[in-house]
Design a protein around this nucleic acid. Structure first.
Lengths: 205, 205
DNA sequence: CGTATGCTCAAACGATCGTTTGAACGATGC
DNA sequence: GCATCGTTCAAACGATCGTTTGAGCATACG
C-alpha cells in the first residue's frame, strides 16, 4: 500500500504498475485502489471513469517520452550529425530510460499491451498526438539513407519499430544476469538495438 | 453465425477469431458461442473450461506452425544450403502463411496478445513444447554466423524475433494497398523481413 | 420395447466488475 | 460559530462474467 504523494498521484502510479502486470481489463479498480491505499470511489471522483484514467496514464508518459525524443533528435541534427547510429540513439534511449525514474519500468509493457488490446482507438490517439515526432525521425532517416525509395524506407522503419518495441517492452528472452547492473544491461540493450537496426536500415546499400 | 462443421470445430474457429479481436478476457463465452451458433454450455461440455479452450486454440495452431517450420528447415539443410536468407525464409514463411488457410489470419495476433496478457504461464507453455524447434534454428544461425559469440548471437536472434513477431501480427503500419493482392503483399512482407533480419544478424561482420 | 449414451438446451448460480450514492470529515472565509 | 467546498468513506446498484444444473432429445444397443 503506497502512502506517498497525493491521491491522484498514488492512483496513477498504482495504475501504471497494475496495468502493466494485468492489462487494462485484468486490473480491477478494487485491486488498483487497494494497492494505492485510496478509496474505491476515488478513481471516478478524480478521473471520471476507468477509461479516462487509462488515457491519463498514457498522456503523462507519452508527453515526456516524445519531448525527450525531440530534444535528443534536435541535439543530433543541430550539431550537423550525419551518423545513422546517433539518430537511432535519440529514438531508442528515451524509451529505454522510461524504465528509470519513479515507477516507470513497466510503461513500455503497458504500451505493447495497449496496442494489442484497444483495436484502433489507442492507435489513433498515439498517431494523432505523437505522429509528428515520428515524422521528424522519418525525415531524418530519409536524409541519411538517400538511396532508399520512400516505400522501401517505410517498410524498414516499420520493421525497426517492431524490433525496438518488442525489445523495450521486455518480452524478449534476453534477461539481465545477476552480475550486470540494471543500468549496464540497459546500455547493452541500447547498443545491440542500434547496431541491429542500423544494419537493417542500411541493408543492401 | 457459422453453421459448418461440428460443434467443437465451430467453437475453435469462433474462439480464434474472437480472441484475436477482443483478447482472452475481452471475449466472453456468450459472444463466442453466439458467433459459433452453439449453446453457451457447449464450451464447458466439450473443453471443460474457458482456459482449456484457450490452450486448445494454441495447441492446434502451434503444432502446425512448428511442423512446417521444421520441414522447411530440413529442406534447406538437407540440400546443403548455406544461405542465411534461406534459413530465415524457413522461419518466417510458415508463420506468415498461417494467415492463409481456413480462418487463421488472426492467429499471430492472438499469439502476441497472449504474450502480453499471460504473464508467464503461456511463455513457459510455448518454450517447453516448442523450444526445441527454436533451438534447431539457433544452431543453424550459429553455423552460418561463426564470427558471432554465443552471447552476441542470442541478442541478435532475440531482436530479430521481436521484429518478426511485430510485423507478422499485423500491428505494423504497412497496410496492404488495394491494388496489391493479399498473396503479393505477404510475399513482399516476407522479403522485406528477410532482408532486414539478414542484415541485422550479419551486422559488423 | 426399454434403456443407456452423447449431446444440446434454457435457466439459474455466485462472483466480480465499473459506477453511483449520500453521509461524514477537515480546512477555509465570513 | 457557521456555512462552503473539496475530498474521502462504506455501502449499494445493475450488469456481466464463467460455470453448473437438470430436463429434453436423438441415436444405438440389448
Amino acid at each position: 500500500m503506497n502512502r506517498t504523494g497525493s491521491t491522484k498521484e498514488r492512483i496513477l502510479g498504482a495504475a501504471e504498475a497494475l496495468f502493466a502486470q494485468r492489462g487494462f481489463d485484468g486490473a480491477s479498480l478494487r485491486q488498483l485502489t487497494s494497492s494505492a491505499g485510496v478509496n474505491l470511489a476515488a478513481v471516478n471522483y478524480h478521473f471520471g471513469s476507468k477509461e479516462k484514467l487509462v488515457e491519463e496514464v498514457f498522456r503523462r508518459r507519452l508527453d515526456a517520452l516524445n519531448a525527450q525524443r525531440q530534444a535528443a533528435l534536435a541535439k543530433v541534427t543541430e550539431l550537423g550529425g550525419n551518423r545513422l547510429e546517433d539518430v537511432l540513439d535519440a529514438f531508442i534511449r528515451p524509451a529505454m530510460e522510461l524504465s528509470d525514474d519513479d515507477g516507470g519500468p513497466l510503461f513500455m509493457r503497458v504500451l505493447v499491451r495497449a496496442f494489442a488490446e484497444h483495436d484502433d482507438t489507442l492507435r489513433r490517439f498515439v498517431s494523432e498526438n505523437y505522429g509528428h515526432v515520428m515524422r521528424q525521425f522519418s525525415a531524418e532517416f530519409a536524409r541519411l539513407l538517400p538511396d532508399l525509395s520512400k516505400e522501401e524506407l517505410y517498410w524498414r522503419i516499420d520493421i525497426m519499430v517492431g524490433a525496438l518495441t518488442h525489445a523495450m517492452s521486455g518480452f524478449g528472452m534476453m534477461k539481465r544476469k545477476n552480475d550486470v547492473s540494471a543500468r549496464a544491461h540497459r546500455e547493452q540493450t541500447i547498443q545491440h538495438l542500434i547496431r541491429f537496426a542500423a544494419a537493417g536500415l542500411r541493408a543492401g546499400s
